[in-house]
């Protein structure tokens, strides 16, 4: 590919995350949105009007649009497999929103197809690009707490009101553990190495679960001996909040987004909260822009991927094992 030509994106899915990926492109040099497709055409038109590019009524047309190099899969989790495969079959590189797929078989199919087609596959585990979690990871790697022994992570938000209520159909979304918990499970695998076993409790698959409410508590043991506790919540009344704490034999690191913000604003007449909340970082570049910049550099062959498809697969495997433990009442070995 000619390095002077911008990288062209086809955004597949125009919901919350599709909008975020599209908007961040403005801060990423050498990348442009060329095509937008949504299951609801009017949403594709609205998004295209904001970020440029052409709205398409059919997925195939969007992928066949001129100068599209990369498909960005922002559709609901259960559609990642068909949409990713369509992009790969059209010879496009793929950036896929996390989780890579709803089940391991789909994830394997996607990874194999990308390898066969010789296209790059990047999974948007964006927490690795959040400066606070990057810093927490780096501090642990630098050994400031010595050997890490205990990690507590939390990622809590109101229940997302995505299109069609697909988040509430836990068989389609995997619930809060697969959608939110997977961020922290990925961070743990990145920071601590492979997991040995996982145990979990949650409202997923509970016949008693109130509609539009999901909550999970996960504990895991890692091969290096460290143990972790993860809280994943779609049961909040308040705002999105994250928490991370690492105890080691030489010290303790602790972070809470509630008391670590550079700006807070309270309007006497607040606008309506968005259907799906995402955290805000007041940094020069948003984590989504940093992530897009990195994926673009990987596709141009300028950088090595910070997260490989295999790592995304392992995060999915750990999250699915947590869901399995909730049903079996026993820890699941990995």
């Amino acid at each position: 590919m000619d390095e002077k030509e911008p990288l062209g994106l086809a955004i597949l899915g125009a919901g919350t995350i599709g909008t975020i990926h599209s908007l961040c492109v403005a801060d990423v040099p050498g990348v442009q949105v060329r095509a937008v497709w949504s299951r609801t055409f009017s949403r594709a038109q609205e998004l295209a009007a904001r970020v440029g590019g052409q709205a398409y009524e059919s997925l195939e047309e969007a992928l066949a649009a001129p100068d599209v190099d990369v498909a960005v899969i922002c559709t609901p989790t259960f559609l990642h497999e068909p949409h990713t495969l369509a992009a790969i079959n059209a010879g496009k590189h793929v950036i896929c929103e996390k989780p890579l797929a709803r089940d391991l078989k789909s994830a394997e199919t996607i990874i194999e197809a990308s390898q066969k087609a010789g296209v790059q596959l990047h999974v948007a585990h964006v927490v690795r690009f959040f400066p606070e979690f990057r810093r927490l990871h780096d501090l642990v790697q630098e050994g400031v707490v010595g050997q890490p022994a205990l990690v507590r992570m939390a990622r809590v938000a109101p229940f997302p009101r995505g299109s069609g209520g697909w988040h509430n159909q836990l068989e389609l979304s995997g619930g809060v553990v697969l959608d939110m918990g997977i961020h922290d499970l990925d961070w743990l695998l990145w920071t601590l190495g492979p997991a040995e076993r996982v145990y979990a409790r949650g409202l997923y698959s509970s016949p008693e679960r109130p509609s539009y409410l999901d909550y999970g508590l996960i504990t895991a043991r890692f091969a290096n001996g460290a143990m972790a506790h993860v809280e994943a919540s779609w049961a909040e009344v308040g705002d999105f909040r994250v928490f991370g704490e690492v105890s080691g034999d030489k010290g303790l690191l602790t972070y809470d987004s509630l008391n670590s913000t550079a700006l807070s604003v309270e309007l006497r007449q607040p606008p309506e909260a968005p259907g799906v909340q995402v955290p805000t970082s007041y940094t020069t570049k948003s984590p989504y822009a940093l992530q897009m910049e990195h994926f673009a550099a990987c596709i141009r062959g300028e950088e090595d991927p910070l997260i490989t498809p295999e790592e995304a697969f392992q995060a999915l495997r750990l999250a699915l094992a947590a869901l399995e433990a909730m049903e079996s009442n026993q820890p699941v070995a990995l």
Binding site: A149, Y199, A226, D249
Partner: peptide, 10 residues
């Protein structure tokens, strides 16, 4: 169920 550790003081 419990994960019990010795990693802080060995």
């Amino acid at each position: 169920y419990a994960e019990i550790g010795h990693g802080l003081f060995h």
